[in-house]
């Protein structure tokens, strides 16, 4: 039997289609091929109008995320062989995102959310470069390192039902990146970010489904990051409750 696999690909041409439909393509089944290789085969040899994003083909640029058989996947890291010779594999654009065309989703909203968490090092002081590096021990690096591994592939958004139900939810990747900076000992912006994110569309929007962490190709654990963030927010709230005008300095004063 010839080695074949069938790809059912969601097609959507905004100029003429009301909504997406599926088109089937038969492609050779090769053990070293990933889903992206099959898409490239179709685009090169069969239908040049098939539209999708890809770039590095080594799982680090974050371009080629799609739904493969209903699961958010990086198609450059998803082997055809995991579905077996003769299988039918369904490829769709990442769920919960607006579709621009075929397998291409609109990312502009994600970029706005990313920017909204202030994902940069915030400092109150800026010592001159000649003062050398900010010290950071390997242990301090290890505390936030996991959350710095996000490649912005947005698979976690496609896995998160809250994103689907509440499109204004800041979402897993952006919140995890906020926490990445919060936990960096060089950063002094945690308070500022907490003010921005301790609201129902921020950390409290998360209902701990945990799917973001399961689908993350880089083991970032956004769900864990958000729960840690919630705990910190809750503790801050309690602190504020016990010490109404409570900053840490005031708390040292003895009140009758």
């Amino acid at each position: 039997m010839a080695e074949k696999i069938v790809l059912e690909i969601a097609r959507y041409a905004p100029e003429k289609d009301e909504k997406p439909s599926f088109q089937s393509f038969e492609v050779p089944f090769r053990k070293e091929w990933v889903v992206l290789d099959a898409l490239n085969h179709i685009k090169d040899k069969v239908d040049g109008s098939l539209t999708y994003r890809w770039s590095c083909r080594m799982g680090v640029c974050g371009s080629c995320g799609m739904m493969v058989n209903g699961e958010p996947k990086l198609t450059c890291a998803t082997f055809l062989s995991s579905y077996g010779n003769g299988a039918t594999v369904r490829v769709e654009p990442l769920r919960y995102f607006p579709v621009i065309r075929d397998l291409v989703t609109a990312l502009s909203d994600f970029l706005v959310k990313l920017q909204s968490v202030k994902p940069w090092l915030i400092r109150k002081d800026e010592p001159p470069l000649s003062a050398g590096e900010f010290l950071q021990t390997p242990e301090q690096l290890d505390i936030y390192k996991q959350f710095s591994m996000c490649i912005n592939c947005t698979l976690c958004y496609a896995a998160c039902p809250v994103v689907g139900l509440e499109p204004t939810f800041v979402g897993p990747a952006a919140l995890a990146l906020a926490q990445r900076y919060n936990m960096d000992n060089r950063d002094q912006g945690a308070e500022e970010r907490l003010g921005l994110l301790a609201h129902p569309e921020g950390i409290w929007g998360c209902t701990f489904v945990g799917e973001c962490t399961r689908v993350c190709p880089k083991h970032v654990d956004p769900a864990g990051a958000i729960q840690q963030y919630k705990l910190k927010a809750a503790l801050e709230w309690v602190k504020g409750f016990i010490l109404p005008r409570g900053s840490e300095d005031q708390s040292k004063e003895v009140r009758p």
Binding site: E133, F134, T137, P138, L141, K145, S148
Partner: peptide
């Protein structure tokens, strides 16, 4: 070296020596 240091100031997670230096 200045440019790499500047990137450190912007938060790049460079690997560190046990004492916290680059």
């Amino acid at each position: 070296p200045q440019e790499l240091l500047r990137l450190e100031r912007w938060g790049c997670p460079w690997n560190r020596e046990p004492d916290g230096h680059i």
